[in-house]
Design a protein around this nucleic acid. Sequence first.
DNA 1: CCCAATTTGTTCGTATGTATC
DNA 2: AGATACATACGAACAAATTGG
Lengths: 239, 239
Amino acid sequence: MAEAIKSWVMAKGLQPGDRLPSESALIARFGMAKGTIREAIRLLEAQGLVTSRTGPGGGVFVHRVSDQRAATLLGNYFYFQDLTIEDVYQIREALEPELAASLAGKLDAGQLAELEDIMTRYAAPARDIGEERDQHIASLLFHARLAEMSQNPLLGFLIRFTANMLSDITVSRRLYAQLNRELWASGVGFQTRLIAALHDGDATAAREIMAEHMRTARRLMRLQETVLTQRFLAEGDLL
Amino acid sequence: MAEAIKSWVMAKGLQPGDRLPSESALIARFGMAKGTIREAIRLLEAQGLVTSRTGPGGGVFVHRVSDQRAATLLGNYFYFQDLTIEDVYQIREALEPELAASLAGKLDAGQLAELEDIMTRYAAPARDIGEERDQHIASLLFHARLAEMSQNPLLGFLIRFTANMLSDITVSRRLYAQLNRELWASGVGFQTRLIAALHDGDATAAREIMAEHMRTARRLMRLQETVLTQRFLAEGDLL
DNA sequence: CCCAATTTGTTCGTATGTATC
DNA sequence: AGATACATACGAACAAATTGG
């Protein structure tokens, strides 16, 4: 029944911002009771396709599915799969270099400045765990912003999604607290060289710099996961 | 309010198949009216997190989000972005070779046989448009099955998703009707060599074969899109 | 085959909250 | 401040589907 409304909306070619008929109008049109209509609207709302506002001029409106919503919905799917950090890095290692290459020479001065600005947030080594965590988040933000600059919506979404998913995993497992200095050192150097390559329009260099960074991060993460497992075995009640 | 139920479910650590309290029980527990509870359940249902059955022994059950559902939900997001075929191929060109490499030497005889079986469906050149369409679908099935064999759930999902999205786009635009013989010829040859490399456990060869196939398909698709645009201009009412 | 119990699904009437004019 | 228009919430009744005796 939500499908009926959805296809009706698509048939009418409604665009984001357009208003759906009011509840009473939908009741009349589809010949269903208020509760049923409302449940159908909830189905659409959960998918992020509509939003509703109360009051005069309010109603139900077509809404473009937000990046956030799409990521959450897709995250629900992987909640039941058992993804490893290694799985996520396999994707990043394939996609991030591609992104870097495709952006070489395409960014304006403002965008390059923004990336440099983010970089300054971890120009200095972290002095405590809190700073270390902040730097880790900021470095993921660097990738997320880069992804938003992509002309390819699919590529941009996937990179933001994997970066966020990694952020969730690592923060929840407190991996960031153990990240060693090597990652920090390689991270700053990498971004400096990457921004230069992007500025110069050197796609090959940008790709290779990013690829190397991914390989390094993946290797370090792999080490951390080993450490983590050892800790679990040492601390927890042994089987 | 659906979030309250969702977090309650996660707090209880319910697993797929576990039953949620009945509507009346939820009404008692959360102190809300039946309609409100039902709307909340619809929100979870739309996300694919629960399903419900009527009758004795029925109720609302935790459900692992299906592949299908996740793909549909993610597809809604991209409905509002304007994705091009080129965008999708940029992802495939990055991911498919990675998949091929990671599966080299990991498939058993049954899996290899299944891939060969799919291949036989387009061993001969298509004689009419209908056959051509079937072959196009079958070739996408080849990629989808290969993706399901991946040990990486994220990689598998993304490849199935991009292949399906491409299938939707091309079928709806009737591109398949224009696919030329070069794609068919290269397709069969590619799969034969790919299966051999997978069997031999030659990851490097598998990656390169797939990469070459993707480059070829992407190039041909690009030509087709040009043709399609020209047709629109020739046929439709000119501006 | 039918009957009864259980649980979700649907309907209606009414009341409340909220934002606009 | 008050009227209006809209979504939101409540409660009671009835319908449909499924299972077991």
